[in-house]
Amino acid sequence: MSITEKTSDNNSSTTETRTSNADSIIQIENLNKWYGAFHVLKDINLDVAKGERIVVCGPSGSGKSTLIRCINRLEEFQEGSLTVDGVALNEDIKNIEAVRREVGMVFQHFNLFPHLTILENLTLAPLWVRKIPKKEAEATAMEYLERVKIPDQALKFPGQLSGGQQQRVAIARSLCMNPKIMLFDEPTSALDPEMISEVLDVMVELAEEGMTMLCVTHEMGFAKKVADRVIFMDAGQIVEQNNPHEFFDNPQNERTQAFLSQIIGH
């Protein structure tokens, strides 16, 4: 590939992100966050289009989890602005709860509610937040359990399920709220190798249905397969972003190249 081609590719991808502003669902402008005196996120600017699938990667401590946790305000930030689906995330608790209703999140350690059955885990938020009638909520829950292929576990407790099954339940639990955006925070990092693919399969399916997704993950196979854009972060900054094809084959930044050679070299 020639240099000119590369630049033009780069240009087109940047213009793509800019022009997608019209139907963008998340706008992050000049976001800065500190933990005490420690500057974790530095001047983050990011626009996410409706239906876009973004994979965020980077070394540990680079701020990638913190960034996506800011999107549903599990983390506060000190400077900049963050708008999700037209709602500005600020101190207003009403806005925060409104955003959280529309943004689903899947955690590294599943965080299922151990005192509730699988079915109750799934119906809890629809019942108490969306005020959906119980029968309807249960029907929806069973539908999603069907989709993640574990309807037979509905009456068990989380502790009786394998890690992969628990993570699939966690995904189904988020989907029951019918979110517009799904955030994944290293969803496969705590899983045994044999269980990673069953979770990734569900995520791929979700991506194919057009869900807006932001995934912090090191599953590069997944990134290549479904991502529209791969973002590389280090030291609290977005170092490089591009479509997966360009990102993996022609990383621009030295830091990205070093990172990729580390994780793909093995």
């Binding site: 549903n72 599990l74 209703r101 943004v103 509610f113 809890l124 938020a125 988020s174």
Partner: peptide, 10 residues
Amino acid sequence: QVEAANSLGL
């Protein structure tokens, strides 16, 4: 647990 509940809008 609190984070999961919060992220569901509770």
